[in-house]
Every structure is written in C-alpha cells, then in structure tokens.
C-alpha cells in the first residue's frame, strides 16, 4: 500500500474508532443532543410554549430516518460524482494535471513553475497515485 493510501486508511480508521468506542464502552441511550437541549428548555422553563410549528413533520421515526438517509445519499452521490468527474478529467488529459494547471496558454511565470513542481510532488508523494492507479 502506498504511503498516500496508508495515511488515508489511518484517517478513516480514526473516524471509525471514534464512533465505535462510545458504542462499545459507554452505556447510554444515545439520544440526540438536539432533543436533550430541547428537554433542558422544557425542564428549566416549563411554561415556554413553542410559538411556531414545523411546516412539515415526518409522521414517524421510520419516515424521518428514510428522509435522513435520502439526505445522506444525495450528498454522498454529489461528492462521488465530483470525484468521478475529476478523475475522468485527469485521465483524459493523459493522467496529467488538471486543466489550467499547466495548459499551454498559461504564462510561464513564477506561479506556474511552482504549480508544476507541486504536481510532480503530488505524484511522488502519492506513490502509486495518480499515474499508477490508472493501471490497477
């Protein structure tokens, strides 16, 4: 595994661990903190009556969780689409830099030189990264 993927994997494992540890070692109801905040208001200010109600309220927890799943799916889909487009773009330009990165029209000033070096570095650091992954 390249250094690039190894670090990505570690970051991912870090997130999983942080989620798993409370579930395994902490006993609690795992209620939402938003709801707990609301309960706190009701406890300290029992006379407060919400003066406005949601335009639409999901009729049950099931419907609500479905809507949340759709929200995550839309977001995840859009993110995946972006990475797909970016990958294809790089592949079409010969696995090379993104458009505008070292295009012929770009003046060869200080900035563009730096950018080219950055790209080379990106590949070096990526190991089997941008170039290699295409053959896998």
């Amino acid at each position: 595994m390249s250094r690039f993927s190894a670090i990505n994997m570690l970051l991912f494992l870090g997130v999983i661990t942080l989620v798993a540890v409370p579930l395994i070692f902490v006993s609690g109801e795992f209620a939402g903190s938003d709801d707990q905040g609301q309960a706190q208001i009701e406890k300290s200010h029992p006379n407060y009556k919400p003066w406005f109600h949601s335009v639409y309220e999901p009729p049950s927890g099931e419907v609500s969780s479905g809507l949340f799943a759709i929200q995550a799916a839309i977001g995840g889909g859009a993110l995946g689409y972006y990475f797909g487009v970016a990958r294809t773009r790089r592949r079409i330009t010969g696995g090379g830099p993104d458009s505008g990165w070292s295009s012929p029209g770009l003046p060869a000033g200080d900035g563009s030189g730096n950018r080219k070096r950055a790209d080379a570095g990106g590949r070096a650091a990526g190991g089997s990264g941008s170039g290699g992954s295409r053959h896998n």
Partner: peptide, 12 residues
Amino acid sequence: ALKLPSVTGSCS
C-alpha cells in the same frame, strides 16, 4: 445528516 454516538452516551 450523520448522527454519531459520542462518549457522553448521546448522539450528535
């Protein structure tokens, strides 16, 4: 949209 469990025994 992602409610995750936390060390306090609640989710956020």
